[in-house]
Every structure is written in structure tokens, then in C-alpha cells.
Nucleic acid binder design. Sequence first.
RNA 1: GGGGUCGUAGUUCAGCUUGGUUAGAACGCUGGCCUGUCAAGCCAGAGGUCGCCGGUUCAAAUCCGGUCGGCCCCGCCA
Length: 585
Amino acid sequence: MKRTHYCGELREAHAGQEVVLMGWVQRRRDHGGLIFVDLRDREGIVQVVFNPEQEPSAHELAGKMRPEHVIAVQGTVALRPPGTENPHLQTGRIEVWAKGAEILSEAKPPVFPIEDEIETAEDVRLTYRFLDLRRFPLQRNLRLRHRVYQVVRAFLDRHGFIEVETPVLTRSTPEGARDYLVPSRLYPGSFFALPQSPQLFKQLLMVSGLDRYFQIVKCFRDEDLRADRQPEFTQIDIEMSFIDREDILTLMEALIAELFEQAAGILLPRPFPRLSYTEAINRYGLDKPDLRFEMELKDLTDLLRGSGFRAVAEPLAVGGWAKGLNTKGCGGSSRSELDGLTDFVKGFGAKGLLWLKVTTNGLQSPVAKFFQPDVLHGIQGRLKGEEGDLLLVVAGEPIVVSEALGRLRVKLAQDLKLIPEGEYRPLWVIDFPLLEFNEQEGRWAAVHHPFTSPMDEDLPWLDADPEKVRAKAYDMVINGQEVGGGSIRIHRREVQSRVFERLGIGPAEAKAKFGFLLDALEYGAPPHGGIAFGLDRLVMILSGASSIRDVIAFPKTQRAQDLLTKAPAPVEPAQLRELHLKIAL
RNA sequence: GGGGUCGUAGUUCAGCUUGGUUAGAACGCUGGCCUGUCAAGCCAGAGGUCGCCGGUUCAAAUCCGGUCGGCCCCGCCA
């Protein structure tokens, strides 16, 4: 027998046709006489009818069919008798009258039901991922992911980008995430590293004159996992020569807009708004603001400076900030709800959370007595507090205040269901700082990466006031998720050396670890820049998945294990000897 | 490294506070009956290392300590 159709594609128009179907038994309804088998393949489900009076041998075989058996059926497509149509099935107006059948493969009962909505524990699903992937929602996500590959490749090809593969076995470089290492057999004691991104290779390809490069590429970072983070993930990696920031933002916006439209029928509002890093932090507290709702942060520093409340006055006296937001209509919040919010902001380093309820008799708050009436009035005015509102204020170090209130803003919007379904709000965040001071290591570190170009006009500040130097870097953010980021790169050797120096990477170390890049910059490097998108996160947004594991065929657990293959696993002593490795636990 | 939460038939859960009969339910599974069902129906049956280790106790799924694992978060992720 040779398959002629997919189960899920049959419609009324096929009535009367002879078909051969192959697939998995979804369910069998055995009436003693008639047997109904729901047959499933990747396109859907169709009902097959086995009639003992018409085809006794096929009917007898149908009696042996069990869920998830793989079978072949030969039969005739027929309109269902009136009154027996099933409106829940795409194929529900027809059925297949079986003339012959074959069991191609028997199956043990599945560990969990193969249905759209299941509540099976995720470790069971991951251990039997091949069964989990039979379920329609995951197949839909994988097919959406496939569409993403195709749309991206078509767009970039049309715009002159050349797809190039870069090495997976490469060298470890300082800065950035922890590397996955691969021991070298031929060079005892030396290691390859799996790339955290093909950053340096794509820059070298620009020096080589490729002009426009892209790659859909796996990247590896040995850091702890989250709902949107896996140790191996996929980037859409892009680099262009002889362009400025504007060229990249415009073209990449077009790429993402086309992707959303063609892969998921979503029309993104264009042009994407642009926010400077500073403005994003000031208004939303985070560098990846969710624009689907308001509730902006307001600065209260000037109002609260010199207040009698030490918990506020002290941080402000040493350069801290006080900011607040208005939770509309939440003035009735209970003490335990407010305690919960306080615990939440403390999780991000805030010392506490001031709350003020707007009532008919003015502001009600345990700390109201510490503030002059005009200060209270000022807070209410600036936060536009109306009766029934809840005003929340945090004071402290600027980054702590921003992050705590920024995260609180998102949490409140989720809890209060202020986030509209089916809305997509992209934006660019630009003008990031080039450097940030790493307290732990007591040195300046690159916010983006060490090859990011400083703004030309900020270059003089590099040594005197590093904090002031802005980078030619940009992030694309959609619905509060960072989906991509990039920069214009340094293409002049002397600038790269100065940045390395600022990062505490001396000439000798730079030569040892990035010599190839510095060399390349001395042999005619074009001005260039690029971007990398997190493909998994884009597919998450497009599919509405809440976990990155739902858009990856074979993901790892939060402890970075593959429950299906049981990787990582110990290896034979002989393998270790070959690699000149000893295990020291 | 830290915080939270969950762990009992194949699956999803109840039982755990207040220790004490044979650890239950639903779905699934097996057998039988049944000719228009689509969560088919009816009857019967099988199925348990209560995550693991230790402690308390006459007695532990239940109390205590530890440990392992899933998920969420902080740190981390240029």
C-alpha cells in the first residue's frame, strides 16, 4: 500500500475517492459491530469506519488496534450519514469506509495521553519527548519555527545577505558568559570553546568583503536557565558593511515586520518607536519596557529630598532617587497584599516600599506623618492620584529604584490583567552606555561586548568619565522581551585598543586572545555593524508559548539535563585518557 | 550559591493538620457484552518501593532531619 493523502486534509470534495492513509490510532470506539477508529497524522484526524458485514477481515484487524498503533488503511471517502457529522473535526463531514487495513507497528499504551491539553508533569513529558511531540500544540510550534527560518532566509537572501557557517569548535575568549569547553585530543591541556555567538567571525567576514552576512546559528552559554533561557539557543545572526545605525534599524525593522506578518499574520505598528536607554529607564525602570500598558514611573526625588523620613532622606542625600507609580483603583489593597508587594521589591534590592492610598480625606499611609502636607500634595499631583488609587514609592540607589519599580510595574500589570491579549508593541532601545562598573571585579565591563563602537562625540570621555560614554548599540524589544540586540562595531585598530585598555585588557592579553581581530583591523576593515535576534524568543512570542522549551524540539531541564538522552553522562576511562583528562571531584 | 513550590497506581489527584483497618478516586489499561459512535456505553478485573536515605515511635504516606528530581524566581546570562 502507498499513502495517497494525509488524514487531516480530507474534505467533502474527496467524497467517492479511494484513499490510502497511514498514521497513528488516536482512539477506537468498538461497538461490537461497527468499529470507529480516529486516525491521526501531522495534518489532523479523520474517522475510519470498519463494517463487519462489508469487510469482515478488516473489521477483525480493527479489533486488535489500540491507541498509538501505527496503521495503514485503504478505503473510500464518504459523506457521513446526516446527523452524524462532527463539527469539532476539520474532517468531520466525511469519514473513510475501510476496505483493507494493516497494522504497521504496535504500541505500548502511551505514558500520557496524546491530546492538545494535558497536565502531565514536565519531566515525564521530556523523558518521552517523542510522545510529547506527537501533540498538536508542539507540532504547531515546530512548524511555526520552520516558517520563521523560511521567511528570514527569503528576506535576507532578497536583500543580498550571504549565509555563511562559522566554526562551532572555536576558542574561549574573555568577557561574557561561561563557556562550554571541548577538550582537544591532539593538543593535550588545550580546549575548544563552543561559541557564545559568532561575533568575531562575522566581523572577520566583513573584513573579508562579504559585505552582508547572516546565519541561523546555535549559540552556547553555560549559565543557569530560566523560562526563556536554554544553554543552547538559536540566533539569527546578521552583519553588514558600509552602513550606519539608521540603515540597520530600518532594514531589521522591515525583517521583523515581514516575519510577524508572514509567519503569524501579525501586523506590527510601524515605524517602531525609539527610546534612548536613559528615557527607557526613567519612564519604565527597565531597558526592555513593555509598552502594552501605561503606568509609567515618575521622579519624586526633588519632592522628597530633605523630608523628615530618614529611610527616604538618607539615600537621596547621597545621590539616590525616589520614584513612584500609580496603581489605578487599587486603594482598597489589603495589608497582606501590600506586604507582598514590599517583599517583591525587596527581592530586587529595595529597602522597602512606601504606599499611599488616595482617599476622600487625602493621602492615607503609615508614613504620611513624616511628610509635610505640600509634599504629600506634590506626590499625589505628580502621580495623578485620584480617589481610590494606590501610590507606590521606592527610594534608594538609582539602579535599584529603577529595577524594583520597573519589575513591580510589570508584575502589577500582569496581576491586574492590564495587558491586552493579541497586542504586539515593538520598539528600539538605543544609546546604551558603553561601559558599566562591575562592583564584584572592581573594573569597567562592556555593557554589550568589547567590540561595540563608542559614539564618536563621546570618545573623549573614555578615560576621564567612562560612565558618560554612549555606545552605538541598540536592542529590539517586543512586549517587554528583548528579542535582539546589536551595534556598530569598532573598525579602527586604535579605538579597539583604547577600549580594551579601558576594560583592563592590556596589549599583551589583547594580542594573545584577540590578536586575529586586531590583525584584521589593520588590513582594511570596513565600517560595519550588525545585530543578532533570539530566534527561540521570537517563536515564543509568535506562538504565545510561555516556556522556551515549548518551541525547542529537544530542550534541557532547568538543571541543564536532557532527560531523553540522559545527557550529560560519564564517559569511558579510555576516552578520558585519550583526551589527557583526569576527573577530580 | 540562595529563595519559593511540587513529588502517592501508566497519568492527574485525594489522603498528610490530629500517626493506627486492606492507601482511595477519575482517566488510562486488560477481559466480556454491544451496529452510528466521536470523552461511545454497560459489566468485571489487574495495577502502589507513598521520590530516596535516616531518625522519632509499639506503629510513619502522615512527624523530624537530610538528600535527589521537576518547575518559577534572585544571583549569573559581554
